[in-house]
């Protein structure tokens, strides 16, 4: 499979969030705005790429029976690096994302890719797999964050899209809005998939 096909696949068909429903906690919790969604997505991408690379390099060294604990240690190391790096450089974003930075360690996408891909493939393929999966995840978080931010506050990436005297639907930046937005995005994607299949 060539690189372009793989990229498209990880964005739409095998997208971790909308296709496989993995990593829902950070997806729903941190997407109160497009910027937060983007930040969370990129932090996860960094951990995913790094852990995929290291696990691929060590794939012949790690004994099969202790592979899961070993993967967890590798992932936890990179999560700690991101946690401290963000605290030092992006303090405000780190404060907003809060608990969900250390929780990247239990994001099933990362352990899933380590087990299903990086432990069986070479360095370059694992790097690309981590990068594409991470970008697919970031893409979903960005879209969900944008929907919630625009409907909930009328702003998008700091720009005001709605005149100030219009009222916005505040519930979309609160907890229920997270579930509802993702629910309706999934409905839309199902509908599109059905139309495409029907047209064939």
């Amino acid at each position: 499979m060539n690189v372009k096909e793989k990229l498209l696949k990880s964005f739409f068909v095998e997208n971790p969030v909308t296709g496989l429903l993995l990593g829902l906690c950070p997806t729903l919790a941190t997407t109160t705005s497009a910027e937060n969604g983007l930040g969370m997505g990129l932090a996860t991408t960094f951990v995913l790429v790094s852990s995929n690379v290291v696990i691929s390099l060590l794939r012949n060294v790690i004994p099969n029976r202790v592979r899961i604990p070993s993967f967890i240690v590798v992932i936890a190391t990179f999560v700690t690096i991101v946690d401290m790096g963000m605290q030092a450089t992006l303090y405000d974003l780190h404060k907003t994302l809060g608990l969900f930075i250390p929780l990247i360690v239990v994001n099933c996408i990362i352990l899933g890719r380590a087990e299903a891909f990086a432990s069986k493939n070479n360095l370059w393929d694992s790097f690309l797999d981590g990068l594409f999966m991470g970008l697919g995840f970031t893409f979903s978080l960005f879209i969900l964050g944008s929907v919630r931010e625009i409907l909930g506050t009328g702003n998008w990436l700091g720009m005001a899209l709605v005149p100030g005297d219009w009222s916005t639907i505040l519930v979309f930046v609160l907890a229920p809005g997270a579930f509802l937005s993702l629910g309706f995005i999934l409905v839309g994607m199902n509908k599109i998939a059905r139309v495409i299949e029907g047209g064939k």
Binding site: V171, A175, P176, G177, F179, L180, L182, G183, F184, R194
Partner: peptide, 22 residues
């Protein structure tokens, strides 16, 4: 409705429950 079956309707139910808990 067919497009809602499975994950989407589950999300929407969770959203309504979350509103109740608010």
């Amino acid at each position: 409705p067919k497009a809602f079956v499975g994950a989407p309707i589950a999300m929407i139910v969770a959203g309504i429950l979350a509103m109740a808990f608010m």
